[in-house]
């Protein structure tokens, strides 16, 4: 069974901790330019993105190259007929070129899980539909830990379109495993009640002030109009009730940090003043994305190397 990374839900706390610890070694030191490593020299990863993405794909590419691996990126257009057959075929074709891992993003929830059943090559999930985005949760945890000692007992408010957010799901699983209090907030039409039981330590509220009150971390989610198949809320009311503005920050802990997986919609879910404020760690998240993905790649590809050595 190939050991890729399909989601956070299936990982144990020590497994996550190991990646978070290792990623510190890959964070840039001060102003120093990053020196390229050769930990994965001669290895090859394929970035297969069925959905538009600039930052995640670039982040994975840079991560692979900094470790000395070769990275090939393919932006695939899922065909409209018999997608799955061509999806399996596409992946089999790529697998026949013997990459060491396939990094995949797909608009369908579970697409990498479905493919992994047929594929020897490990798959790293770079976001599947509205299900999981594991490396985003890892880089978010890395970013929170850069400011504090532990995730345990932190109050984390995740605000926005929870129903359609893979970022929210992966973060909920990760934070819950580490004992954080997670407050999910959004309009009820984007906040299914069943989320309360998705993991321990989760509470729900439709009131943004309540969510932010006493928060150590505020994670804003992008309003994903492309994932909504209907108008679940009146678009022009969104910012008024669920957009993050400076005055909200008064309710949170003084050292609160504001996060966002990007790309941000200024004036839709977050005001420019907040996005550019001292409390915002949005650019740190981007930076940590590379370090965390290096740790993930090393873990996935390293594991395979050991396996081969036994032959």
């Amino acid at each position: 069974m190939p050991q890729g990374l399909l989601g956070i839900e299936g990982l144990s706390r020590p497994e996550i901790q190991a990646i978070l610890d290792r990623s510190r070694d890959f964070q840039p030191r001060g102003d120093q330019r990053f020196r390229k490593l050769d930990l994965l020299r001669g290895r090859m990863v394929v970035n297969l993105f069925f959905e538009a993405s600039t930052r995640t794909r670039t982040s994975f590419e840079i991560a692979a190259r900094r470790l000395g691996a070769d990275a090939v990126s393919i932006t695939a257009q899922a065909s409209s007929v018999s997608k799955g057959e061509s999806l399996v075929d596409t992946l089999n074709t790529l697998a026949a070129m013997h990459p060491d891992a396939i990094i995949m993003r797909h608009a369908a929830s579970g697409a990498p899980h479905f493919l992994q059943r047929y594929l020897e090559t490990p798959i790293i999930n770079a976001g599947d539909g509205t299900h999981e985005h594991p490396t985003q949760a890892l880089l978010d945890a890395r970013t929170i830990l850069d400011r504090g000692q532990t995730l345990e007992g932190l109050r984390v408010a995740i605000i926005g379109d929870i129903a359609h957010s893979r970022v929210a799901r992966s973060n909920v699983h990760l934070l819950s495993k580490f004992g954080a209090h997670i407050v999910l907030c959004g309009p009820a039409s984007l906040l299914p009640r069943e989320l309360e039981n998705i993991a321990s330590g989760v509470t729900l509220t439709t009131d943004m002030n309540e969510a932010i009150c006493g928060a150590d971390v505020i994670m804003m989610l992008r309003v994903q109009l492309e994932r909504q198949h209907e108008a679940a809320f009146p678009a022009n009311e969104y910012f008024q009730f669920y957009g993050l503005r400076l005055e909200h920050l008064q309710l949170a802990k003084p050292e609160v940090i504001v996060m966002h997986p990007g790309p941000i919609n200024r004036g839709r879910e977050i005001s420019s003043e907040v996005a550019d404020s001292q409390r915002s760690v949005i650019l740190n998240q981007v930076e940590n994305g590379i370090a965390v993905r290096m740790a993930v790649l090393e873990s996935v590809l390293g594991a395979k190397k050991n396996g081969n050595a036994a032959h």
Binding site: G110, T130, R169
Partner: peptide, 12 residues
């Protein structure tokens, strides 16, 4: 089915 499982799996 709409319920805890669909929410967990990110399926509509």
């Amino acid at each position: 089915h709409e319920g805890a499982e669909s929410v967990r799996l990110g399926l509509r």
